[in-house]
Nucleic acid binder design. Sequence first.
DNA 1: CCTTCAAGCTTGAAACGTCAAGTCATGCTG
DNA 2: CAGCATGACTTGACGTTTCAAGCTTGAAGG
Lengths: 170, 170
Amino acid sequence: MMHDMAVDAREPTATEPLGGWLTPGQLDSWLSLVRVLIWLPWSIDQQLQRDSKLRMVEYQVLAMLSEHENWTTHMSALAEVTNASLSRLSHVVERLEKRGLVRREPDPTDGRFTNAILTDLGYATLAEAAPGHVTHLRSIVIDALSPEQLRRLGSASQRIMSRIDASRAG
Amino acid sequence: MMHDMAVDAREPTATEPLGGWLTPGQLDSWLSLVRVLIWLPWSIDQQLQRDSKLRMVEYQVLAMLSEHENWTTHMSALAEVTNASLSRLSHVVERLEKRGLVRREPDPTDGRFTNAILTDLGYATLAEAAPGHVTHLRSIVIDALSPEQLRRLGSASQRIMSRIDASRAG
DNA sequence: CCTTCAAGCTTGAAACGTCAAGTCATGCTG
DNA sequence: CAGCATGACTTGACGTTTCAAGCTTGAAGG
């Protein structure tokens, strides 16, 4: 779906997919990719919520914080990586804060920035969630492909991302 | 993020990514894929909403209907393909119905099913949206890759999907 | 200093999605 | 064929995201 529906047919009964814009091979590849775009995040979310009561965004926030000096990052940096709007991130972090996994304070060196800071509890939560997450990842993605296939998937992803980045900048 | 955070460090200052669970290469490929999972749907949504006032789910619903006999499909079939819960789909179709793009009626052959049916207006809307969507798709995905790369991306996606399908069934 | 401005959030209302019941048609069982 | 079970939704309440202001901090110009 989402590409190959007939655009010339006028009768409900006579409607047949045309696929006039993409070759069958292109269409096929695209359809497979769409399925992954839809179902892979879903699958990851399922596992995280079931085993760790975390959403993917929340996990991303905690993980990202854990990788920074002093477990501290500007809100805006978090927003960029997770593709959450600032406003969404603000709400997400507010909820994490209520759960005691993160706290916020103004950046001492520039009061316009707000720092999100991972708490010990947040770190512990992340540390508990991580192994299950990686295991799941392995079983769904990593082990489904040969090393070479995985490498190629990565580089195709990079090429796509550079197009997206370009279209965002332009 | 989401995999390689240190799990042994206890001091906020000493925290360094370990990457102990995935090789650097695997991690790299995975990170690239995650970025696509996050940003590609976003990019598609942007274009559709800007040019056609449609969300991706809505486009999917219209497109899927257009490919069926009599522009008609059971709600549950739509739900499966779009990975919307039945309930979400019900709300989505309700909104499409209010906009006159779709209508609903009980399946005459089995009253438990509800048929969603594309209206002429819905078809026209889809036909208007499709070219822009395909153009965008081409510029972001198809043209970013060689035919061979695209083919490989498709088959990698299939392999991943079969794992996900298996984990859903089991 | 004193505006004016932009950046970086925060907030609240509205739109959207999820979850837990509830409804209704059909199948199955005794 | 009565009664229970099941499947396919629908509904409404609740939680989340988005959208459009609004607030606050610091920078720049006069």
